[in-house]
């Protein structure tokens, strides 16, 4: 099967799919693509099953050589993409031939790129998933290494396709994160909740696949001792210093800090493309509205098909 001989991985390259199932009760992190939007589009361009694994590249700096003819799709951060030293567009399919080189420069906007191949990348599986979780140090499931050969699942050559213009994101756009009230929400004071929703917060340097630390006006955490409990994606944890942390895909399965609510999954996807020093805001949202946005998002990818190279229609 055709694949890529990886030369450089940049800061971090991992395989990611929708994440593990039925592993958290053993202490395993969920993992999974941090930006669902860019991940779903990469697979959609190739008509892949939605669980197909993509390569997730942080901050560009990735380069590789094709071992045979293969289609790829690249989405995500505004990184300059080169195929054989020729600049190419993101958010579309390309065909590589044996010996072709592909490289991504560090992005001017956004952080993560997704590279998909027909049928997804092959890789080690754990809990029905090929997602890699660097912090867990599990053999074969940490990161892609330089000189590693990674192979596609199918050798199909995909037609030329482009993500339609209205769906292209701007990772520098102002971002307000929708927070579902939950967990210890009612234990926080009215003032604490108002601080969260009226003051701006800044993305710090302490960001990774486990979580995003933000800084801004301190949110007073309730004075309570809490037994550790299961942590959902997007849980908005307020430690004693009052600086919020949004917990992401590689979070620990349990935690004991008070949580003022949970950020919507699609907003977690938007957040993880934001660089340090970006300003974000929070607002409380109804569970039903957040679910609605997510269900429509998933239905779009599940129930549309390509009418031509730049148009999708509902099935």
């Amino acid at each position: 099967m055709s694949g890529l001989e990886v030369h450089d991985t940049g800061l971090r390259a991992t395989l990611q799919d929708e994440g593990r199932r039925h592993g958290q009760h053993l202490g395993l992190a969920v993992g999974g693509a941090a930006d669902l939007h860019a991940f779903r589009w990469a697979n959609k361009l190739l008509d892949n099953p939605r669980t197909s694994a993509c390569l997730e590249v942080l901050m560009g700096g990735f380069s590789a050589e094709a071992t045979g003819t293969m289609s790829i799709a690249v989405t995500g951060a505004a990184s300059r993409l080169f195929i054989n030293d020729r600049r190419q567009s993101l958010w579309r399919t390309h065909t590589l031939h044996a010996g072709d080189t592909i490289s991504l420069e560090p992005p001017s906007n956004g952080l993560l790129n997704y590279i998909a191949v027909p049928g997804g990348w092959q890789g080690n599986e754990l809990c029905q998933s090929r997602s890699m979780t660097p912090r867990e140090g599990l053999p074969g499931l940490t990161v892609i290494e330089p000189d590693q050969l990674i192979e596609a699942t199918s050798s199909d050559v995909a037609p030329e396709r482009h993500v339609p213009q209205p769906f292209l994101p701007d990772y520098a756009a102002p971002l307000t994160l929708n927070v579902i009230p939950g967990y210890q929400h009612t234990a926080f004071s009215h003032d604490a909740r108002r601080t969260l929703t009226t003051r701006p917060y800044t993305v710090t340097q302490q960001i990774d696949r486990m979580g995003y630390r933000l800084s801004g006006a301190a949110i007073k955490a309730p004075d309570m001792t809490l037994l550790s409990e299961g942590i959902a994606l997007g849980a908005l944890q307020i430690p004693t210093d009052g600086q919020p942390i949004v917990l992401l895909n590689d979070r620990q399965t349990m935690g004991g800090y008070p949580k003022i609510g949970t950020v919507a999954a699609l907003d977690c996807s938007r957040l993880c493309q934001r660089k340090p020093d970006t300003e974000v805001r929070f607002r409380f949202a109804e569970l039903a509205n957040v679910q609605c946005e997510r269900v429509v998002f998933e239905a779009f990818f599940g129930r549309t098909e390509w009418a031509d190279s730049r148009t999708l229609r509902w099935r």
Partner: peptide, 18 residues
């Protein structure tokens, strides 16, 4: 059901929105 996280006094149940 996608996942469950039993803890000291709680059980987190993650379900499949699909």
């Amino acid at each position: 059901i996608i996942d469950q996280v039993p803890a000291y006094t709680t059980l987190l149940v993650v379900y499949d929105l699909h």
